[in-house]
């Protein structure tokens, strides 16, 4: 019974979303079918793209010592940390939600919050795979301009976001990170 409750609590968001899509299907079969198709498509995408990301983060977790992470991406890593964060975020393939578990390992190992926010920014927007679709699709002027605006943009957002995080917020993030990696 306790286990059942725990599972339901764990999967509550999924259960609600699934019930909602069933209701949509009952009300409008065409809309429901489209929702189902997209869901299947995204599920395939997740199953294909996500596994190597998690393998890499698992290996990162066991092999990279804390001191190394602190040195390269910690509070006092300076420009080096920023550049590394941008490169790490830009080369990976995968949807935005894949960036968060990786961020958790970075933070746990001692990367600064600022660099992790920059990493998320890079993952979301300066990704090289994306650029390769954007360049032919929307033209060089569009793609290059966006990249040139985005790089300073994600750095500034990283700095401002980190500055907004009070001691209490940082503590909360730490707790959440530990929960997600240790449990």
């Amino acid at each position: 019974m306790f286990l059942m409750k725990k599972i339901i609590k764990h999967y509550l968001f999924f259960i609600i979303a699934a019930i909602a899509s069933i209701i949509i299907f009952i009300l409008n079969a065409e809309l429901g079918r489209r929702a189902f198709e997209t869901t299947v498509y995204s599920l395939q995408e997740m199953l294909i793209v996500i596994p190597p990301i998690f393998v890499l983060l698992g290996l990162l977790d066991v092999w990279v010592p804390k001191e190394t992470m602190v040195k390269f991406m910690g509070e006092n890593s300076g420009i080096k940390g920023i550049i590394l964060a941008i490169i790490a975020g830009s080369v990976a393939a995968g949807p935005l939600y894949g960036a968060f578990p990786v961020s958790a390992v970075f933070l746990k190992k001692g990367a600064s919050l600022r660099n992790v926010f920059i990493f998320i920014g890079a993952w979301s927007t300066t990704k090289i795979p994306m650029f390769l679709f954007e360049y032919p699709g929307l033209g060089p002027r569009f793609a290059v301009t966006r990249l040139l605006v985005d790089i300073p943009g994600i750095i500034i957002i990283g700095f401002v976001l980190a500055a907004c995080m009070k001691e209490r917020d940082r503590k909360l993030i730490n707790e959440k990170i530990m929960e997600s990696t240790e449990k």
Binding site: Y11, I16, A17, A35, S42, M46
Partner: peptide, 10 residues
Amino acid sequence: FLGIIVLVGI
């Protein structure tokens, strides 16, 4: 992840 995938479908 599963929740998101269903939500995005909707």
